[in-house]
């Protein structure tokens, strides 16, 4: 039972991360390869703040605010990029992030990571998996509902104008940088919530948990929701989490199951890149 609940938790958390990634594309045509870094920012911020004795609720607020700020600033930079240049920029940001958390050892404990995250606020030893599965499901479905409603909002239309041309947006009275920052903040909050729950669930933050390979998996999941209904991201999350886990359950060694996930993610991104970014030549 715990295995199923654990898988469900991961499916919903990766769904949230994929939703955060798809949101920046749907609003601004900006593809991020640094979603894991935003998740990691929230997870690390929570772990560090709690380790330094801050009350849990303040650590949660601090973690989400940090992720929101990082998301806002990263997407704000898309004002200076065109099209897929932003993917290259975020790839670089992901590298910088990994470099910082691996080397800033007196704060992040470097490659050792921080263990015991949130242990004192766990809900006892009897049903933690159930609590996390329920919390991640409620959060995922709640945010999906909000995101779905936002699809037909005036802000979404305004963002589409900003995505087309910042100059056009300025001329009609929009503020392109403010729009980009807000999209980044919204995406950062969602990714931050996923990162926070992830850290609480696995009780560990470590650079390898939020590396470029994880960003590629999240990118692949978000590709399921670049167009059409957002709920398709849940399908992507289920596929990319369930299949490797079921393979592992069926006896495939853990490392190879991880490679299977990367293989599927790479395949999804390749197909998505050809289908979605097909430009007239």
């Amino acid at each position: 039972m715990n295995f199923v609940l654990t898988i469900l938790t991961f499916v919903f958390l990766y769904f949230l991360a994929g939703l955060a990634g798809a949101y920046t594309f749907r609003r601004l045509d900006a593809i991020s390869v640094a979603q894991a870094a935003v998740l990691g920012t929230s997870a690390y911020a929570f772990a560090i703040l709690q380790m330094r004795g801050l009350p849990t609720y303040l650590s949660v607020i601090g973690a989400i605010l940090t992720a929101a700020l990082v998301g806002g600033m990263a997407v704000g930079l898309s004002e200076r990029t065109i099209g897929e240049d932003y993917a290259l920029l975020t790839f670089a940001l992901q590298m910088i992030w990994s470099g910082i958390v691996s080397n800033w050892t007196n704060v992040t404990r470097g490659p050792l990571g921080i263990s015991g995250v949130g242990l004192q606020i766990r809900f006892g030893s009897t049903a933690p998996a159930f609590v996390y599965a329920a919390a991640s499901a409620i959060l995922a479905l709640g945010i999906l509902w909000i995101a779905h409603r936002g699809e037909s909002s005036l802000f979404a239309s305004g963002a589409a104008v900003v995505a087309r041309s910042s100059e056009l947006a300025s001329t009609v009275g929009l503020r392109p940088l403010a729009t980009r920052f807000q999209v980044g903040v919204a995406s950062g909050v969602v990714a931050g919530l996923a990162g926070l729950l992830f850290a609480l669930f696995v009780t560990l933050v470590h650079p390898s948990l939020f590396g470029i390979d994880v960003s590629v998996v999240i990118l692949a999941i978000s590709f399921f929701g670049l167009t059409g209904k957002l709920v398709k991201i849940l399908l992507g999350s289920a596929l990319l989490i369930l299949v490797p886990e079921l393979a592992r359950f069926a006896g495939l060694p853990g490392a190879r199951a991880g490679y299977l996930q990367l293989l599927m993610a790479g395949f999804t991104v390749s197909v998505g890149a050809v289908v979605f970014f097909r430009h007239d030549r």
């Binding site: 409603r149 936002g150 909002s153 005036l154 802000f155 239309s157 403010a178 807000q182 999209v183």
Partner: peptide, 23 residues
């Protein structure tokens, strides 16, 4: 598009009053 042009203030802010106005 014309709604955005007509109401750019509402289209700029994600959580502004009326920002979630249907387009």
């Amino acid at each position: 598009y014309l709604r955005v042009v007509r109401f750019p203030e509402k289209a700029t802010w994600l959580v502004a009053i009326g920002g979630q106005t249907r387009a």
